[in-house]
Design a protein around this nucleic acid. Structure first.
Length: 742
DNA sequence: GGAAATCTAAAT
DNA sequence: TTTAGATTTCCC
């Protein structure tokens, strides 16, 4: 007799432990670690799903109370025990229930109706079909549905069932009828919905010396069985991707698989094509637009050995490859690698752990490494590889800093400095292209009263409402919508209005200054459609516009050879954000933006406009001096005890009752003081957004150099909450080394 | 999370 | 004393 430890599929702290069940003899060969099963649970023996996380021969619980497993879920994929260890890692290090951790790691089977795509095709020759059709038309009361279907099938070989029934309005009875007569064929196809690509003539890419040395170094380590974590610090345009690909090929030839993580915004057609054209249909792509079912399909392909490379965002990290050899994290510094849902794991640390489990190599790449990664490289935990030169030998753009204070003194209050205008005129003359950045993320657009200063807020959330074109005001967090008012609700003044989004205002100014210039604007407003980004970017690439205005989203990925001028309109904005990442973010943004200029044959110029020209992030990014920036930033982090020098545990207590959230937060803060008097506690204080969807939120930050110490605090809070009887209406969750202000 | 068990108090 | 309602317990 075998016994199984099972995690119940209910995310609740009180059930966050394994339950032991008997494995019935007839299921013994089906039940394995990682398999999804149905078990009778509770007094009522209601059927609940669960995950097998362990198997043993001797029962550990009172045998009399053990119940047998009811059945094994159809089509459940047994995830490797490795992924269960990974889930345990997530639970321990980032705070969640085991069930939540398992769910982030295991692809969830799509719901009951397994969506097999049904396809209709002719079962007879075209000629015969034409005869059938004419025969059908001779009948007086023939089914028009059949007619439409046959006509359509004369034109296309295969027709989707959905298309036939929805668009052509063919009754399903008609289809069945024709099928019975043997005229058409209906087949259910398992679609993996992978854009099928043909491996184009793979040009053998020749690596330059620097790239070659980097790739060889990693490959040599792999060949001698040394599996490490590498940080490739390569300037923008140094061709990190070629190095990745070279190592990828090496690993694949060894019969191992590769996971490539790419930040969501960079997951564009161009990026994907680079992998397809090199590795053909061994590559699969994951993206966040995919339904859980589609994601499941991709994972199943990976498990079956159908593919060897998975390219995707954060979640692709959990691709169930049996023989994983390499994990690549491109643009390692990107904040999107940190999960915003529980467990709030960081893909970088999790990747290193997964690689450790499967004996794989990790390559992190960035032009502007995160402080976390670079400090680990400094300490020798990661191995640092530096690419100093641009792959095609272009020079870095010349950078000029414009002091906006001086500009103001000279009476120029516009967003564009004299110097920038001058250069723009020159480039427009030469028919070269210009990019203008404004790194403001939708802070504008709120409605405020110019008389009393009141800002209109959402009644359910502690955030400002945004004015929309249709004359309504909307809350971006909960979706609350109301009509825009003409008079201020607090003082009655009619001088109430909205500020235009920065990009919009900038667009107007450029058009005013250069009426004949063709301007494209890219922001949340203009990219509504699902391919909005692509359309705008490819239009710009095709030189259908002279100026591209946008937020950070235009900084990534694309190479525009004809861009010779980049203007960073307001470098300060991200500097003034009130969190410890602002310096790092500013440096990254400016560096990436500067890197956009002069990608082609013409040298580029970048203009940085700022009110703080002496700020170290501005100065070092203008000089493209990462080390200079790193030294100052790490000193600052060390001084103030911020990551990576120290670690932070963010604790959020939320409740519909403002008072309960507050008192519970106070109780927890006192508890922390009691269990570990050494750590530094900040707060409790209101969360950055103090109220969201009618739920009040308080936060506590705990700082310490020792990560494990914070984990212990999390654990003691967890066990305290389990015992505690009051304040059951509050929810508590954790965020380790939070990236965004809670 | 949810059914069953236990407790609480107010209605008969 | 009964009983609806609230609270707590326990689930392998």
């Amino acid at each position: 007799m075998k016994y199984a430890d099972i995690i119940i599929d209910i995310s609740h702290e009180r059930l966050d432990k394994t339950f032991e069940y008997i494995v019935p003899d007839e299921l013994e060969n089906q039940v394995a670690e990682g398999v999804q099963v149905v078990i009778p649970f509770g007094q009522g023996n209601r059927a609940i799903t669960g995950y097998v996380v362990g198997l043993h021969d001797k029962p550990e619980f009172d045998v009399a109370k053990l119940k047998p497993i009811a059945r094994v879920m159809r089509d459940s994929i047994a995830i490797e025990s490795q992924l269960i260890s990974l889930a345990a890692f997530l639970k321990r290090n980032y705070g969640s229930t085991m069930n939540q951790a398992l769910k982030t790691v295991i692809p969830i089977k799509k719901k009951e109706n397994e969506k097999l795509k049904k396809e209709i095709s002719l079962n007879i020759s075209l000629e015969q079909a034409k005869i059938e059709l004419t025969e059908l038309l001779t009948k007086k009361n023939h089914a028009v549905g059949k007619e439409r279907l046959l006509k359509e099938l004369l034109d296309v070989d295969v027709l989707d069932w959905e298309l036939a029934t929805k668009k052509l309005q063919v009754p399903s009875g008609n289809i069945r009828d024709l099928e019975k007569k043997g005229i058409i064929r209906v087949e259910s196809v398992r679609t993996f919905r992978n854009p099928h690509m043909h491996k184009s003539e793979s040009k053998h890419i020749v690596l330059n010396d620097e790239q070659e040395a980097a790739a060889e170094r990693i490959k040599a380590d792999i060949d001698t069985g040394r599996r490490k974590t590498y940080l490739i610090h390569g300037v923008t345009g140094s061709g990190k991707t070629e190095v990745y690909m070279d190592v990828m090929e090496h690993v694949i030839n060894m019969g191992q698989q590769v996971i490539v993580l790419i930040p969501e915004i960079a997951l564009t057609y161009q990026t994907v094509m680079r992998f397809y054209s090199r590795f053909g249909d061994r590559v699969s792509i994951l993206n966040s637009r995919m339904s859980p079912g589609e994601r499941f399909d991709q994972f199943e392909r990976a498990k079956s050995g159908d593919i060897s490379i998975m390219v995707g965002p954060r979640s692709a990290l959990f691709t169930p490859f049996a023989n994983l050899g390499l994990i690549i994290i491109d643009e390692e510094h990107e904040p999107s690698y940190k999960s915003e849902v529980i467990p709030r794991y960081h893909a970088r640390e999790t990747a290193v752990y997964r690689a450790h489990l499967s004996g794989a190599t990790v390559i992190l790449g960035s032009a502007t490494p995160s402080l976390e990664a670079y400090s680990r490289a400094q300490s020798g935990e990661y191995e640092l590889i530096t690419l100093n030169n641009r792959a095609k030998g272009q020079d870095m753009a010349a950078v000029e800093i414009v002091d906006l204070r001086e500009e103001l003194k000279r009476g120029n209050r516009s967003m564009l400095s004299h110097r920038l205008l001058e250069l723009m005129a020159d480039r427009l003359n030469k028919k070269q292209q210009i990019m203008l950045f404004l790194n403001r993320r939708g802070l504008m657009g709120f409605v405020s009263c110019r008389a009393c200063g009141k800002v209109l807020k959402c009644p359910h959330c502690d955030v400002a409402l945004h004015l929309h074109k249709d004359g309504t005001m909307k809350c971006h967090y909960c979706g609350f919508t109301t009509r825009a008012t003409k008079i201020c609700p607090s003082c009655g003044s009619k001088y109430i209005g909205s500020f235009k989004a920065g990009t919009q205002r900038l667009e107007e100014m450029v058009k005013e200054a250069f009426p004949s210039a063709r301007v494209l604007r890219m922001d949340a407003d203009t990219t509504k459609g699902k391919d909005g980004h692509e359309e705008i970017l490819s239009a710009f690439a095709a030189h259908e516009a002279d100026v591209l205005i946008g937020t950070q989203m235009i900084v990534k990925g694309h190479d525009f050879a004809n861009v010779t001028l980049v203007g960073i309109v307001a470098a300060d904005i991200s500097l003034n954000e009130s969190d410890y990442h602002s310096g790092e973010r500013t440096f990254q943004l400016l560096t990436q933006a500067v890197g956009r200029a002069g990608r082609g044959s013409e040298p580029g110029v970048a203009i940085i406009q700022t009110y703080q020209p002496e700020n170290y992030a501005v100065v070092t990014s203008a000089a493209q001096d990462y080390n200079g920036f790193y030294e100052q930033e790490i000193a600052y982090r060390g001084l103030l005890g911020y990551p990576p020098c120290s670690h932070i545990l963010g604790i959020q207590v939320s409740s519909e009752s403002e008072r309960d959230a507050a008192s519970q937060a106070d109780i927890l803060a006192n508890l922390i003081r009691k269990v570990d008097p050494q750590v530094i506690i900040m707060g409790p204080q209101d969360a950055y957004i103090g109220k969201l969807k009618d739920v009040f939120r308080r936060v506590i930050y705990v700082k310490d150099q020792d990560y494990d110490r914070l984990v212990k605090i999390k654990d003691s809070i967890d066990s305290f909450l389990l015992e505690q009887k009051q304040y059951r209406n509050t929810t508590t969750w954790f965020d380790f080394d939070p990236i965004n202000t809670l």
